[in-house]
Simulated assay, not measured.
Amino acid sequence: MLLENKTAVIYGGGGSIGGAIADAFAAEGARVFLAGRTPAKLETVADRIRAAGGQVETAVVDAMDAAAVNDHVDSVVEKTGSVDISINLITLEGIFQPLSDISTPDFVAAIGKALTTQLITTKAAARHMAKQESGVLLFFGGSDPSNASPGMGNVQVGFDAVESLRRQWAAELAPHGVRTVTLLTGGIVDTFPDVPEMEGAKQSIIDASPLKRAATMADVGAVAAFVASERGRSITSTQVNISFGACHG
């Protein structure tokens, strides 16, 4: 198993992408700790992992609360001895409008919240990883400056901001043996609502790929598990493109 004896903390672990990554990590032998604000969603993912024979625990944690996040990570390390993988999948509050139509306070609040939660959760894990001289910090979304599209509002700006944060973490943590990797995505179609008005968006993601394919939640989980494992140990300070070539980070 790729992640046997590894400990992974997943913020937003009750969501679709968080759940898919949790499934993959657990299937590869990791002990998974799901954190989020909605107990029912966390338990749905946890029940699925337990039914498959995986190791999982859940905790209600507000990832905007630095004290709560630090207490949770400390408790994980106390139980397991380490935190080997951390990923924050709390969704950016997207405002899909032209920039000229978005109020400045709304724009700043959404970007600020995304950066705040990423900074809090990464700091909590990095504190332990630096002491361990090992660990993997994963990020999701990524930066694709060649693929700007109108009407995306704050979304790509937010991803770019988080990617800039990831680059700074990479520079500071590499001397401590900590790897930082972003999963660059052009959109995960099976997370979209199954309604007629979303079909065009799904098809545009497929059409943007040279292979005319789009990544699925299972693809995200599989790549995340590989990157976080020792087999992916040469991958750091970069983005891994999981968009079937639609993105050019």
Rank of each mutant, 00 (worst) to 15 (best):
L3W: 08
N5Y: 06
N5P: 01
K6Q: 13
K6D: 02
K6F: 04
T7D: 02
T7Q: 04
S16N: 14
A20S: 13
I21C: 05
I21D: 01
A24V: 07
F25H: 01
A26T: 05
A26R: 04
E28A: 15
G29W: 12
R31E: 11
A35K: 09
T38M: 06
K41P: 00
T44S: 05
A46G: 02
D47R: 09
I49V: 10
I49C: 04
R50D: 04
A51M: 06
A52F: 00
A52S: 11
G53S: 09
G53H: 08
T58S: 04
A59T: 01
A63Q: 06
A63I: 12
A66T: 09
V73N: 02
T80A: 15
T80L: 11
I85P: 06
I85E: 03
I85C: 10
I85K: 09
S86P: 01
N88T: 12
Q97E: 14
Q97H: 06
L99Y: 11
S100M: 10
I102G: 01
T104F: 13
T104V: 15
P105Y: 09
V108C: 02
V108P: 00
A110N: 01
K113L: 12
A114G: 12
L119D: 00
I120L: 03
T121D: 03
K123C: 02
A124N: 02
R127T: 13
K131Y: 00
K131T: 13
K131I: 10
E133C: 01
E133I: 00
V136Q: 04
V136N: 12
L138T: 06
F139A: 14
G141D: 00
G141N: 01
D144C: 11
A148Q: 06
S149V: 05
V155Q: 03
G158M: 03
G158Q: 02
F159L: 11
V162S: 03
V162L: 15
Q168Y: 10
A170M: 05
A170Q: 12
A171F: 10
A174C: 02
H176V: 01
H176M: 08
T180K: 07
T180C: 15
T191Q: 08
F192K: 09
D194Q: 15
P196F: 10
P196C: 12
M198P: 03
K202M: 11
I206T: 13
D207Q: 13
S209V: 09
A214V: 07
A215Y: 04
A224V: 10
F226H: 07
V227Y: 08
A228L: 10
A228S: 15
R231F: 12
G232L: 10
R233P: 01
S234C: 02
S234F: 09
T236Y: 07
S243W: 05
F244T: 03
G245K: 12
G245D: 12
H248Y: 04
H248E: 04
